[in-house]
Amino acid sequence: MPLETYLVYLSAVMVFFATPPDTSQLLIISNSIRHGLRRSVFTACGDLTANCLQMIAAAFGLAAIVATSATAFLWIKWLGMAYLIWIGLQLILSKEEGRKAAVSDTGSSLRLFRQGFITSMANPFAVVFFGALFPQFIDSGNPVLPQLLILGLTYIVVDGLILLLWGWLGVRATAALQRYSLGLVSKICGGLMILAATLLATKDLQPRR
């Protein structure tokens, strides 16, 4: 892959992330506020693992199948929305357990990983996105697999850095919220999750016919 092509791809990925936070980014902000940046890394790992599976699906041509199945889109879309609302309501209805719990270590690594994984997998548009993006930068005259690995790893690294940045911003927000009660922090986190669900529900995921 020529360096010029790679730099164009890198620029395209950076532009893609120059938007307001999406559902996965809202989730890591929320988990960073509640559990700290170190533990929210597990959420980022879950998200990136889902991205890797979505890239593999795109590479095997499943993007075309998903793009033509309105039923699959709708089911994944609404199940994902319901999951995020469930997380949000749990946070909003959680009871205050004291000021020291404002940044809690109670979220298990597996639970935080699962939240990131399911939230990312709940967006079927990702498979179509990768299936449409990668072919634009692949040289058919050279082996395809190494090019896919380069494109995929680049996306994962950029996405991971962006997620950590949002998580760090969440930690900074925690410092500003320390003078308030844990109940308020939990309600803010729950509101973020419901906002994420709303974004997922209103995003146009209908495939073109």
Rank of each mutant, 00 (worst) to 15 (best):
V185P: 06
G160V: 00
K187Y: 00
Q136Y: 11
L26Y: 02
A201R: 10
L79M: 11
L112C: 11
L145Q: 09
I87H: 02
S24T: 01
L110Y: 12
L91Y: 15
A18D: 13
A196K: 01
L165Y: 14
Q136S: 13
F16C: 08
L93I: 14
F129N: 04
A173S: 15
A70V: 07
R38G: 13
A197F: 07
E96Y: 06
L37T: 05
I33K: 00
S120V: 10
A82C: 12
Q147L: 07
A101W: 08
A44D: 06
D139A: 15
G141K: 12
A197E: 03
S140N: 14
A18W: 11
S181Q: 05
I76Y: 04
S32V: 05
A196H: 00
V128K: 12
Q25D: 02
I118G: 03
F137M: 09
L27K: 09
Y6E: 00
M14D: 07
T106K: 15
R208Q: 14
V66D: 02
S181A: 08
I28A: 00
A132Q: 11
L10G: 11
A72V: 09
F113V: 07
L177C: 11
R209P: 15
L84R: 03
N123H: 08
G183R: 08
W86I: 09
Q25F: 02
A175I: 10
Q178C: 11
L169C: 15
G116T: 06
L74M: 04
M14W: 13
M14V: 12
A12W: 10
S32Q: 04
L27W: 05
P146A: 08
I28G: 01
L93T: 15
G183W: 06
L184P: 06
G190W: 01
L182K: 08
P146Y: 02
T119H: 09
A122F: 00
A175F: 14
L153Q: 08
F130R: 03
S186I: 06
S94N: 13
R172Y: 12
S181M: 08
Q54A: 12
A132P: 08
A132R: 10
M14F: 14
G107F: 13
L153Y: 09
L79A: 06
S69V: 02
R34T: 12
K187T: 06
L53E: 02
L3G: 09
T68M: 15
M81H: 05
S94L: 12
A59D: 05
Y83L: 01
F117C: 08
A18F: 13
W75N: 03
L169S: 14
V15I: 11
S140Y: 13
D204P: 07
L205F: 07
L37P: 04
L153I: 13
A102M: 13
I33G: 05
F129W: 05
D22E: 07
I76C: 04
I162W: 00
A44G: 12
L3K: 11
G80C: 01
L192Q: 09
I33Y: 04
M121N: 00
A44N: 10
D204V: 12
L184D: 06
A64C: 10
L165W: 15
L177W: 10
N51W: 03
V66S: 01
P124A: 01
